[in-house]
Amino acid sequence: MGKTTLQEEFVKLMANHQKLVHSLCSLYFAQYEDRKDMFQEIVLQLWKAYPSFNHQSKVSTWIYRISLNTVFAKLRKEKLRPKNEPYSDDAYQISAAEHSLELTQATDELYQAIAQLGDVDKAIMMLYLEEHSYEEIAGILNLSRTNVSTRINRIKTKLEKLLKSQLP
């Protein structure tokens, strides 16, 4: 397959699946510029890995695996914020001022609740909501199935509390 054809195929694939990457970036990065940079970085990493993608796993699983590795590497490298610490009110207000996501109240409550989870827990919750099996989640994040199962129960309890506390 020619390089141009491969590139066209990849661009079409990304255009169809970019929703996954955008939702992931928005969970980890509050600032518009950070989200944009991360999206570009993820697309590059996916492009780099695309020739060796053998289509044996689901496309979404492949995208999530590479995207999450890229996000975690970025968070480790630049230490944008202290680990497992929710965004401060100030950070949220700054992002709200410029290019913040305009979400309906219900989805904003979910976003705020998930934003308070730790980095790995966010990924687990996102993959769980995307209806990936425990085995798939464990494979993507290099965790054991038991660990994933335990964490999901813990996260669900935490989210339930957070969402209840946000209700008027």
Binding site: Q18, K19, L20, H22, S23, C25, S26, R35, F39, L101, E102, L103, T104, A106, T107, L110, Y111
Partner: peptide
């Protein structure tokens, strides 16, 4: 709904 709204603004 969250994914759709995020995608509409970032596509």
């Amino acid at each position: 709904s969250y994914k759709t709204q995020v995608n509409e603004q970032s596509e």
